[in-house]
């Protein structure tokens, strides 16, 4: 589903061009959130972006810090506003209309 807005934390400090966006994984009906650069696919565990997550299914795929599955599988998607609120991250993100 394409959202009419884009939720992001900041420009990626690793690659400098991507947007660090909130992605959620719903594997086993559990909502897990993380921050992913939509350009270089660096993953951080939360919007503070102090801890980078580099493990997972393999080193070439952005993976969920919670379950380790690929963040590009059907069980993951970019978070909508509700999900960002559920994660308690709403005050840490920016919302831009697309």
């Amino acid at each position: 589903m394409v959202l009419p807005y884009l939720i992001y934390v900041r420009t990626c400090p690793a690659c400098g061009d991507g947007l660090c966006r909130v992605r959620v994984c719903t594997h086993q009906n559990k909502l897990a959130g993380c921050v992913v650069c939509d350009e270089c696919e660096s993953v951080w565990t939360d919007p503070a972006m102090s801890e980078k997550f580099t493990e997972g299914v393999d080193s070439y795929t952005a993976s969920c810090p919670d379950c380790g599955r690929s963040l590009w599988e059907d069980t993951s998607h970019w978070a909508d506003i509700q999900e960002v609120c559920l994660l308690g991250w709403y005050d840490k993100v920016k919302v831009a209309r697309t």
């Binding site: 690793a14 690659c15 400098g16 061009d17 991507g18 270089c40 696919e41 080193s59 070439y60």
Partner: peptide, 11 residues
């Protein structure tokens, strides 16, 4: 700017 992991191009 070219981002790679090993020899795998990321972006």
């Amino acid at each position: 700017r070219i981002v790679v992991r090993d020899k795998n191009l990321i972006t």
